[in-house]
Simulated scan of single mutants.
Amino acid sequence: MSPEKQGWGKVYFCPTPIGNLRDITLRVLDVLKEADCIACEDTRVTLKLLNAYQIRKPLLSYHAHNVPQATRDILRLVREGKVVAFVSDAGMPGIQDPGMELVLRLLEEGIPFEVLPGPSAFLLGVVYSGFAFSGFTFLGFLPREGKERRETLRRVLLLPQATVLYESPRRLLKTLGDIREIAGGERRVLVARELTKLHEEILRGTVAEVAEMLKGRDILGEVVIVVEGAPKRKEEVQVPRRLLELLRGRGLTQKDIVTLLSEGLGIEKNALKRQLSALEEAEDLGEG
């Protein structure tokens, strides 16, 4: 820390359990016990956790509707030499909650902070899915409606990496329908609900199968969706253009050429048809 900042306090971003209150690290408990103040989204939720571990600390409410004022309060406390623990209602603060705005402000002001490791629902979903051999893209919550929502889905569902997102139980079936429309009903998905809680549920199958499992049900709890990455297309064998021209020059039809090369060289018929069509288009353009 630079000399002018000596005597300042610090902000600790403390992940909290996503369901089971025992899923908290010893380091997080130490920080919560030693902090001068705990900033939290919902004081009622945080009090439940603190009471379970007999921790008594002043609470500062920090949520989407009071970010500017709450941020100023935190900055003032740190400059006074206080230690502030920052928690969200569940999981890693700064992921799909106002905590990221605080991170940006701390960076702007040059105020020291530390992020502690801990629970995060989307990581559990990724591991449960088994889809992440090529990595994954985490979207958080999609836009609720409109063109942006569909374009975002369309862009990531064409990638070989898995797609991970959070969804409201009210919109779960709609989102599965959108995924099915873009990626097809055979794309595999995992839907994880109420992770680490008493009624945890993990559903696996194709998009169509999982949607059918959920149809007509009263869906409750936070939801993680993991979508398998797009299948890799087979690399097409390119037949030399001169060979195609020679075969056509000998009077063979497209059907004859496709049959000959597919049987003789094992090249996929549709790939051959695409190459012949491209050759014809190039010749037409040349004549034009």
Rank of each mutant, 00 (worst) to 15 (best):
G9A: 14
P169G: 02
E283D: 07
A85V: 00
L157K: 02
A64V: 07
L50E: 05
Q6F: 11
A183S: 12
G7T: 10
Q275C: 12
I267G: 02
F113N: 02
V224Y: 07
Q161D: 05
I55G: 08
G205W: 03
L29T: 07
S120I: 11
M92R: 05
D36S: 08
A39H: 09
G146D: 14
D256E: 15
E145F: 07
D30M: 06
A132V: 03
V191S: 04
K33H: 03
G184I: 00
L173Q: 05
V78C: 03
G221F: 03
K147D: 13
A64Y: 08
F86W: 03
R171N: 01
K57C: 03
L32T: 08
Y166N: 00
T137A: 04
F122D: 09
T259S: 13
L173A: 05
L142T: 07
E222Q: 00
N51C: 05
E80L: 04
D30R: 12
E212Y: 09
D30W: 06
P240C: 10
I219T: 04
R241V: 03
R155H: 13
A64D: 15
T206E: 10
G146R: 11
A162Q: 12
Q254A: 13
V126C: 08
D36L: 01
T163P: 04
R22D: 15
K10Y: 08
T137S: 09
P17D: 05
K273C: 05
G135F: 07
N66T: 03
